[in-house]
Amino acid sequence: MKKINAMFKRLAARGEKALIPYITAGDPSLALSRELVLEMAGRGADLIELGIPFSDPLADGPTIQAACQRALKQEVNLPKILDLVRTLRQDTEIPLVLMGYYNPILAYGLDRLARDAAEAGVDGFIIPDLPGEEARDWHRAACDAGLAPIFLAAPTSGPARIRKIGSLTRGFLYYVSVTGITGARAGLPEDLKTALAEVRQLVTCPLAVGFGISTPEQVRDLAPLVDGVVVGSAIVQKIACRTDAAMVKEIGDFIAELKAPLRSGQ
């Protein structure tokens, strides 16, 4: 949790915004996930989300569904992802957040997972199918272990819920840009900017926006309204099935392009 807070503070002092890329851990392999994290960290990512593959990712579109399937074929599971984080911590201090559905987390055990993840070097968790109402045990377990339980707000939430979620979340508030599932989109909702300006008034924590954001132009457009931008499916699409060395470099170039409009003075 501390590393996430420090990162947002450091960037804010410089007038800079965070780039938050997402990849599914183990897609196409755990070894390449490791290389991808290090490449992204070196090319401008400020926090990295590692997806925990799940058999039934019901908030995700086809791109991340397929990535989950590829990772599950490699028999990737939570213990292996914690091992990945452990080896990454030998080489990078970038904040790492695991994003995954509740059942695998429940199956591991809430308290045990919070302890093991913190010990491995994880900084927080995003659980898209765990709304605040059902999160009491997890919130306590995560906070006790020093992990940030990060919650999402949506265009359907309305001011009262957003205020509540804003006081519950740690690290940052993840605002879902669209009424829908994950996936790269050509256009974002017209009222997104107005919505983000409203959310800004309702919460005091750092604010990141995600879902559907796929180009440097979209990032540039949203940067002034938020503290961070999440890009997922657009990166996962570029990874899709490729295992060649050029792929890692290409992702690095894409990260650099996405980060450019988030640097100060842009």
Partner: peptide, 20 residues
């Protein structure tokens, strides 16, 4: 009132659906 039958039930859905 939270939709629980003992430890079972509840509302484990993406935030987008909670208001609905």
């Amino acid at each position: 009132k939270h939709g629980h039958f003992g430890q079972f039930g509840g509302r484990f859905v993406p935030e987008t659906l909670m208001p609905a």
